[in-house]
Amino acid sequence: MKNNEKFLEVRDLRVSFFTHAGEVKAVDGISYDLGEHEVMGIVGESGSGKSVEAYSIIGLLQNPGRVIGGSVKFMGEDVLAYSEEQKREFRGNKVSMIFQNPMTCLNPVYTIGNQLMEALLCHNKDVTRKAAYDRAVEMLELVGINNARKRMKQYPHEFSGGMRQRAMIAMALICSPKLLIADEPTTALDVTIQAQILELMKDIQRKTGMSIIFITHNLGVVAEICDRVSVMYAGHIVEQGNVNDIFYRPKHPYTEGLLRSMPRVDTKERERLIPIEGTPVDLLNPPKGCPFAPRCEKCLKVCLEHKPPFLQVGEDAHGSACWLHVKEMKEAGE
């Protein structure tokens, strides 16, 4: 990687699903950079396109989903231009992914050891089975699974939910990838296990220095683990910045709304949470202007007609896409 090249550079990525009912623009022109050793959170409600975006980076999109525009450059290479074979080599090797539901993500009919070793062996032809076995045991120990040798011989149904997610993490990291995409890895786990898994991921990230894209709808998790945050709504990134800016100086009305709807430790007794009114956008018929406009309490006329530009609103690449910023800037200029 040359010095001027970014680790991961996503530019104007567009992904659509071509269904019988019409084109669904799941991801509609998003851009962001991710640095090496950086942990980025992608936050958004269900259907905001956060998983689809990640799938298109790693090449797991399936019919009828297609990338229709934009570019994804990973260490200077255009990932979207890869052939199927190159994509296969890339997946699990340079970029790995872990998923939401550890209960169903491991194949029930093969042992944990078999599945771990397979992930290593399919990318490294010259690794012996013995070496792969040792590496798999080492990985299980790294993710905090005791009795690793015995565990290698067990089947997924003999593991608890948290243990399975640990095994998934071990499997994803066995080839020492540079980037881990975690698609809601803690959502299906109960709260105490969630904390353990987050702690584990933070720990491993510190040890290995890999970058993580952490997809979640849980802002608490974001605060816990992420350096930077992208807030997604209806296929757009509406706000982006470092974790402190997003939590303490949110600029976009949607981010503000999200934060208001979240319970806090310092919330007074009997104080009510404020929900965001309305329902998510129908992506088959997205609004002409800002996708959040129909639910926004600060909606202007222009919001309904035109898409807002993504503007720099603070230091450390803090940006937000809202017409209010344009208005503020004009007022400040006058």
Binding site: I58, L60, R88, E89, F90, R91, G92, N93, S96, M97, F99, N101, T104, C105, L106, N107, P108, V109, Y110, E118, A119, C122, H123, M168, M171, A172
Partner: peptide
């Protein structure tokens, strides 16, 4: 199933995904 997605995410070849991971199930 989800484990087939996992197998794809690992970078396995299609033949192996179908005949190893899916078939036995």
């Amino acid at each position: 199933q989800d484990y087939i997605r996992t197998a794809r995410a690992k970078g396995l070849k299609t033949g192996r995904i179908i005949f190893k991971h899916a078939l036995r199930n």
